Every structure is written in structure tokens, then in C-alpha cells.
Amino acid sequence: MSDTASDPALSFAPLRPMLMRVAYRMLGSIADAEDVMQDAYLRWAETDRGAVRVPEAFLRRVVTRLCLDHLKAARVRREAYDGPWLPEPVVEAEDEQDDVTLPLMLALERLSPLERAAFLLHDVFGQSFDEIAAVIGRDPAACRQLAARARAHVRAERPRYPVERAHGQEIAAAFLTASRAGDTDALRELLAADVTFYSDGGGKRPAVARVMRGLSEVVRSLAAIARLLAGKPAQIVRTGLVNGLPGFVTREHDGLLQTTALLIEDGRIAAIYVMRNPDKLAHLEREMH
């Protein structure tokens, strides 16, 4: 056995980014995905690694099964969640682009755990149905059906007209200015007629208590928030893609981080996703230091 194979840490480390992507997309939580990584590493350390022909496939199977177990408990927690639930935000580097956007992750939440696994492993990570069958314990035909069912549910959530990155950031900057100023005329120009507004505070910080829908309601909500925040400026920490969507990270007047992601279609903002729950922003806080 080579030094890399004999040392569990050395053989696990190169595969960790891929495994983390699988776990995060399955769970929608960086913290939960990190827990799964820890469990997967412990299992890898206890495995006869010399007998594993394809470590990547073996570990993806371990991680997916751990995620399926985790989702049973997560579903119970989500039902008791205070206000709208959003996945933990991932702010991507300049050279990154993720097609698993925030709306798609929300759509995945509505799938069964097995549908989610089949869809992600096949459509996102390019695994064959034979490989998926070995992971989730169903035959290939059943896996194909699971993925097809999932695809039908999430098809509408894929961006129909992905916005060019620079243009997306221009719209995000204009939205930041208009929303902080409470400029209702500018907001009406930026927002789509059927815009939705999600704000996740998790019961830890003030946030909109339900999903706001429609231009009038969203503009009214944003104007009310602007009045509450008058004289309490926020600092822009980063701009870029938040879960694959144009957005920005701000440090608010209370000293805590906040992320805003915008779904843009036909040049208008179709959905606004604001993360305020400090528990879900802890990983970003660590990155800032």
C-alpha cells in the first residue's frame, strides 16, 4: 500500500472538496455537511483502504448514505423552523460558477431524500444509474424513475435566462442602493411583477416572518425595512455570486453579517433571498478572519 493509501488523511484530503459539494447540496447546510465529512473520514480511517479499488466512488457512497440518514432528522427540524427556511449561503470566488442555484436548492428541499440523491448524483455529478443503485440501495430502473420524478419537479426552478455576471452585479448594486434608501420608484423599476422575498432570521434576528409575494407587497416590505434602518448604515463586505446568484455580503449595524442573493430573469429581479440567521452565517464569519 502506498503512503497516500496507508495514511487516511492524505488519501481523504484530495477528495474532500468533491465530497463536501455532494453533502452540501444534499443537506443545504455547511455545518451539517461538515459533520458528515467528519463521520465519513472516521469511517475511511477504519476501512481496509487497500481493498478499495476506487476511493472516490466508495467515499461518495458513504457520504450519500450519511446524508440520507441525516435528512430524516433535518426534515423534522425544518418543520419546526421559525419563519422562511433558506440553505446556508455559499459565496463563490471570482472564477467559480455554480449551476446549483439557490432556487434549485429550495426545490430540492421539496423532494424525498432518495429523489434528491438520484437527481444530484445523476444530473449534477454525472453518475450512472448503476452507480447510483449501489449508493442508495435501489435497482437502476428505480433510480432512473426517482431522477425523472425529481427532474420534473425542479425543471421550473432552473434559470431560464441566466444573467451575464457583470450585468447581474450591476442590478444587485442598484438594488442595494434603492432598497437601503427606500426608493420605491427605483424598486418598482428593478423588481418583476411576481417577485418573491425570502428573509431567514431563524428566530435569532428580526426578519420577514413569511415569504412576501408580488410587487406591491415586496416594495412595501422593503420600504418599511428601509425606514427601520434609517441612520444605521451597513458596510459592503463582498460582492459576487451567492449560491450561484448575483448578490452581496454586508455587515449590518448590529455588527453581524447578512447575505442577499437575487434571482434575475428578463432583466428584472424575480426573487430576493436574504440570510440573517447568524448560525447559518458562522462559516462566512470565520472566512472573514
Rank of each mutant, 00 (worst) to 15 (best):
S2C: 05
D3M: 09
S6C: 08
F12A: 07
A13R: 15
A13H: 12
R16V: 00
L19V: 06
L19H: 12
M20Y: 05
V22H: 03
V22R: 05
L27W: 06
L27K: 04
I30T: 13
E34F: 05
D35S: 15
V36R: 07
Q38Y: 06
D39A: 10
R43H: 14
R43N: 11
A45K: 15
E46W: 04
T47W: 08
D48Y: 10
D48P: 02
A51V: 06
R53H: 13
F58C: 11
V63N: 07
T64Y: 11
R65K: 14
L71H: 04
K72D: 03
A73R: 14
R75I: 03
V76W: 12
R77S: 13
W85N: 01
W85H: 05
L86E: 00
P87R: 07
E88D: 07
V90K: 07
V90T: 10
D95I: 02
Q97S: 14
Q97I: 02
D98R: 14
L102I: 09
L102Q: 10
L104T: 12
S112E: 14
A117Y: 08
F119S: 08
L120I: 08
L120P: 04
L121K: 09
F125C: 01
Q127C: 06
S128R: 11
E131T: 09
A133M: 11
V135I: 14
P140R: 00
A141M: 09
A141R: 13
A141V: 10
A142P: 00
C143P: 03
L146P: 12
A148N: 15
R151I: 00
R151Y: 09
H153N: 11
H153K: 13
V154L: 10
R160C: 08
E164S: 12
E164H: 12
A173M: 10
A181F: 01
A181P: 00
T184I: 07
R188G: 13
E189F: 03
L191K: 07
A193N: 06
A193V: 10
F197D: 08
Y198C: 01
D200V: 00
D200E: 04
G201E: 04
K204Q: 09
R210G: 02
R210P: 00
L215M: 14
L215Y: 08
A223F: 06
A224N: 12
L228I: 01
L229F: 03
I236W: 02
P246T: 05
P246E: 05
G247Q: 11
V249D: 01
T250S: 11
T250H: 03
T250E: 10
R251L: 06
R251K: 14
E252L: 12
E252D: 11
H253I: 00
D254I: 01
G255W: 11
L257C: 11
L257M: 12
T260C: 15
A261P: 03
L263Q: 15
A270S: 14
Y273F: 15
V274R: 03
M275D: 04
R276E: 02
K280V: 00
K280Q: 15
H283Y: 04
R286V: 02
